[in-house]
Design a protein around this nucleic acid. Structure first.
Length: 853
RNA sequence: GGGCGAUUGGCUCAGUUGGUAGAGCACCGCCUUCACACGGCGGGGGUCACAGGUUCGAGUCCUGUAUCGCCCACCA
């Protein structure tokens, strides 16, 4: 094709232009007819649309995109979808704040409801308007749809090579159907089961939470020394507790089996202070003789250790905390309703603690004052108050019993970087309960389950009514089980729907199934599963990665992917993780405005896989510089001839030496990419490119122009080399800086650079057997000449009268092969090359022209 | 308490089987150069956290220590 090389190449407008060119030409379209062997499938992390995209997203998604582009150029049909995680609590909270509403399932649906506010809710608006569940869910859909448009625009601008026709959402019908289908299969396989058990519970959200969602927070507390009375009348046993308000829930005391102080007392009983309930003193290895007084009280339930003790020592249950976090109106059987308990009924834990402490002080059963401490307490990661443990009926997925298989799955995955595997292993080895997947929330995937209601109007949880798979997704709150009518809902002899929704990870753990249309019969699934790559942050190994492996193991008995690549975090210059709460967030669109997409991608691509990286605008400036340099160098390399020059014409020794180096570069970059080390591939390519510009271009310039004294074949050799090298370099750079490379490609080639084949050795045979020294000696010699001029404070173009190069054997020979290029580039009148004596020193004497020196 | 990383010039980082320390930024000097002033050329600057060990030779391998970060456990 005829070349169209701009006089003043520019980066301006490339993002918008190529964004639509790529879309219109379907450059990144997935070919659904490809066989599995030809497919490279990526399990893209669906970003949470209730938040905003930040620099960390730009960073890690760029990493994945470089891999996708490399694989595509290697001839793979790349399955690269995008998903939006719009399911779950995060969205509910955003909707509440954005519209100033709250979901109240008792409010009837209002078909004409329109929200008063939209993102402009007054700060002092305390009372959120209660609306029906259906209205609330509609608002969730409305807002996420808007948010998703913004996200897609940013990704397109960043140049992610995703196939946008493969979009999915985690609240969409497909995701619901697949979540429910997977659940029903897990249920029939015995992997999913309902269980009434002590469960971690957030009292504000009034929902169960999973082990993976826990965070520790340091909070102030206090040790209270409390006296229990021995039933043998031999005095008291003093325990120390941070939660005296749970005294009424006490079911035993416990000490270490080897603790001499308490050994004689094991098996005896004591009476609780205030409530006078008889409880045993028992041995258990988890009790720590060093802690407090060495003896602890077991309550149902103060913490997870209590649950272990309760289970292993087979203790009774005396629950006193309700789902709202307040003390239950009815005390446990052993505790008198009309005693001290009455004073704490309906109080929060905090309020109850104050009351109990003053009661204990009054009764004289508290020893001394409370001793203030700070200690770590478990919170739901999104919660504001400490978790309680309450007994409730929840759905679980089996994990603990599958521990060995889950560990084996991890060995089937190649981890990048490899040490990240130990985080997964540690987590799996430390599992202490099955995965609780039910949540008492609204905007999520409902459990596709109804229960029969017996003749007395009581729910019969043992009679589970399930839908037909073909009818999924269903909502048990509005859909009716087969054989019943809506009128029977909640009626004696009728049915009732399971009120819970699934944990967001119960859906996210199925991203391969959702993206791959599992169970749809459209043939996609068989072409992409198990997938090739899961890219994600290392902070969600215990959640997303783990849960995805659980689902794959349960249903398919395989690892869901062959590779897992962990990206690091972005740190601000003070080495803190960048986050909204730190107030140090940089808005990605500003970044792209300021530096351009290629420059930002360059910064991201420069970071080693899995390494936390400092946010560094300076690195983006370098990326910008690289892109501009590529434009100008390309303009130069393509400017000599309007026609394609045959690579077979590459004959000059220095040209062949350059091609040989390029061959080495291609091998290194390919090897690096095969090991998922995009950063190394970029670094090597970039390093080659700069020396190509600084040395080779200068050396070959005169010859390429076809100046006097150059034979035609020498000039053609230079022109052919420039074109070949540019052709290969554009392809090597394409995964990193897709806009500028495609711009240059469009000047002289048809199609997109992103549809081209990754370079191989077979294109670079001109370099075979070339003498590397020719290029390196020439560059060194030119360097010495330049230095002489710099020291003489003259222009780089100043003429040189003569250069006498005394070099040893091979180097002298190499220099002779590039003498005219060196003389031309250095503006040297006479270049004399002398063979140094055996063992003699090598010198370079530069004599500047008398007129300039 | 257990595990995993990191520690290299002022800053941000490379350094793949052990072979005389590298880049960019910043700094200094020079050059309006016919691809590029969003430029080019050149220069100064590091006892590779510390202490031992293996080796002819260690930034690189081994042991230990310190500091920083992350994950997990503990939570009376």
């Amino acid at each position: 094709m005829a070349r169209r090389i701009p006089d003043k190449p520019t980066l301006d407008g490339l993002e918008a232009r190529f964004g639509s060119v790529w879309e219109d030409n379907g450059v990144y379209r997935f070919d659904r007819t490809a066989s599995r062997a030809d497919v490279y499938a990526i399990d893209t992390p669906p970003p949470t649309v209730s938040g905003s995209l930040h620099v960390g997203h730009v960073f890690s998604y760029t990493h994945t995109d470089t891999i996708a582009r490399y694989q595509r150029m290697q001839g793979k049909d790349v399955f690269y979808p995008m998903g939006w995680d719009d399911n779950g609590l995060a969205t509910e909270r955003r909707v509440q704040n954005y519209y100033g509403v709250t979901c109240d399932p008792s409010v009837p649906f209002d078909p004409s409801f329109t929200p008063v506010y939209a993102g402009n809710v007054p700060k002092d608006l305390r009372d959120r308007t209660p609306i029906s569940r259906k209205n609330f869910v509609e608002l969730c859909h409305t807002l996420t749809t808007e948010d998703e448009k913004v996200f897609e625009a940013l990704w397109r601008r960043l140049g992610l090579s995703v196939d946008w026709s493969l979009i999915y959402t985690t609240i969409g019908r497909d995701a619901q159907r697949i979540s429910q289908r997977a659940f029903l299969q897990n249920l029939s396989a015995g992997v999913a089961y309902p269980h009434e058990a002590p469960t971690l519970w957030d009292v504000d959200f009034r929902s169960a939470v999973a082990q993976a969602e826990l965070v520790d927070k340091e909070v102030p507390g206090a040790y209270h020394a409390v006296a229990f009375h021995r039933t043998d009348g031999q005095g008291d046993v003093v325990i120390e507790t941070t939660r005296p308000e749970l005294l009424a829930a006490c079911v035993a005391l416990v000490a270490h089996p080897d603790d001499a102080r308490f050994k004689p007392l094991f098996g005896s009983t004591v009476r609780t202070p205030l409530y006078d309930v008889e409880v045993p003193l028992l041995p258990h290895e988890l009790a720590d003789p060093e802690k407090g007084s060495g003896v602890a009280m077991i309550c149902t339930f103060g913490d997870l250790t209590d649950v272990i003790w309760w289970r292993e020592l087979q203790l009774p249950t005396r629950a006193i905390i309700g789902r709202d976090g307040c003390i239950l109106a009815t005390p446990p059987d052993a505790v008198a309703a009309d005693g001290p308990y009455g004073a704490i009924v309906g109080k929060s834990s905090k309020q109850a603690q104050k009351i109990v402490v003053s009661q204990l002080q009054e009764s004289g059963e508290m020893i001394g004052e409370a001793r203030a401490i700070t200690h770590p307490v478990k919170f739901y990661e999104k919660g504001d108050r400490p978790l309680e443990i309450v007994t409730s009926r929840q759905w679980f997925l089996r994990t603990v019993a599958d521990r060995d298989a889950l560990l084996r799955r991890a060995t089937e995955i190649t981890w990048h970087p490899s040490f990240m595997k130990s985080r997964y292993d540690d987590w799996v080895k430390g599992l202490n309960g099955d995965w609780c997947i039910s949540r008492q929330r609204f905007f999520g995937v409902p459990f596709p389950v109804w229960y029969a209601v017996d003749a007395q109007g009581e729910t019969d949880f043992d009679t589970v009514l399930l839908p037909d798979v073909d009818t999924l997704p269903i909502d048990p709150q509005s859909d009716v089980p087969v054989g019943y009518t809506e009128a029977q809902r909640g009626q004696p002899g009728g049915f009732i729907g399971d009120p819970d929704v699934m944990d967001t990870w119960a859906t996210s753990s199925l991203t391969p199934q959702i993206a791959g249309h599992w169970g749809s019969g459209d043939g996609l699934w068989e072409r992409m599963y198990p997938m090739d790559l899961r890219p994600q942050g290392h902070d969600i190994i215990r959640t997303w990665l783990f849960s995805t492996v659980v689902r794959a193991n349960a249903k398919f008995g395989v690892a869901p992917w062959t590779n897992a690549a962990m990206s690091g975090w972005i740190l601000d210059p003070d080495r803190k993780k960048m986050s909204k709460s730190q107030g140090n967030v940089v808005v990605p669109t500003d970044l792209l405005d300021d530096h351009g997409s290629d420059a930002v991608r360059y910064w991201a691509s420069s970071a080693r896989p899995g390494v936390d990286t400092t946010f560094d605008p300076g690195q983006m400036k370098i990326g910008r510089k690289l892109a501009v340099k590529l434009l100008n160098a390309s303009r130069f390399a393509l400017g000599f001839s309007d026609t394609e020059v045959d690579a077979a014409k590459i004959s000059a020794p220095i040209d062949r030496a350059l091609v040989k180096r390029l061959d080495t570069l291609v091998k290194e970059a390919t090897l690096a990419f095969e090991g998922y080390d995009y950063a190394r591939a970029l670094e090597r390519t970039e390093s080659f490119f700069w020396s190509f510009c600084d040395d080779y271009l200068e050396l070959a310039k005169g010859r390429a122009y076809g100046g006097e004294g150059y034979p035609t074949d020498a000039t053609e050799s230079a022109q052919a080399t420039l074109q070949l090298v540019l052709d290969v370099l554009l392809r090597l750079f394409a995964p990193f800086i897709p806009f500028v490379t495609d711009e240059v490609w469009s000047w002289w080639r048809d199609g997109s650079v992103h549809s081209q084949a990754w370079p191989t050795a077979t294109e670079l045979t001109a370099g075979h057997g070339a003498n590397d020294l020719v290029l390196s000696v020439a560059a060194e010699t030119l360097g010495v000449i330049r230095k002489s001029k710099t020291e003489a404070k003259v222009s780089i173009k100043a003429p040189v009268e003569k250069v006498v190069a005394t070099q040893r054997g091979e180097r002298a020979a190499a220099l002779r092969l590039s003498a005219s290029d060196v003389a031309d580039a250095g503006v040297v009148s006479t270049l004399t090359i002398v063979d140094a004596a055996e063992g003699g020193s090598e010198t370079l004497e530069v004599t500047l022209d008398a007129a300039t020196a």
